[in-house]
Amino acid sequence: MNFDHTKPIYLQIIDYIKKQIIGGELTIGDKIPSQRELAQQLKVNPNTVQRAYREMEAMELTETIRGQGTFIVEKKQLLEELQLEMAEALLKNFILEIRSLGYDDKEIIKLVEKYQQKLGEELS
C-alpha cells in the first residue's frame, strides 16, 4: 500500500481496513493483523498503527479481546454503513466540485442520469 504523505497516515490505515471490509476481503468477526504485523507490512511506525487501532476501537469498527487479538465487530449492518459512509464522502466531493463549475442541483441530476445512460451503453 502506498500512502499519501500529505494526509495523516493513521486515517489512511483506517480507510485501508474499511476498504477491505467493503471489498469483501474482511468480514464481520474476522481477526485483523496485530499492530506489530501491520506496522511491518505497511512499513509504518508502530505508534501510528496503535493510534489507528485506538480510533477504530473508539468508532466501534473493531474490538480487541485480550490475549486473542483485534477483530472486526460482529455487527450485521456494518457493511452497509461503511458503503454509505464512503458513498457520501464521494458524493460530497462530486457535488461540491460540479457546483463550482456553475451547474445548479436540477441540472446536476439531469447530467448524472444522462451520463449513467451513456456509461451503460458504453459498457454493454
Binding site: 504523505h5 500529505t6 493513521y10
Partner: peptide, 12 residues
C-alpha cells in the same frame, strides 16, 4: 501526523 494535517503537505 499533526504537521501533515495542518500543512496538508508531506514532510518533503
Amino acid at each position: 501526523e499533526t504537521l501533515r494535517e495542518e500543512h496538508g503537505a508531506s514532510l518533503i
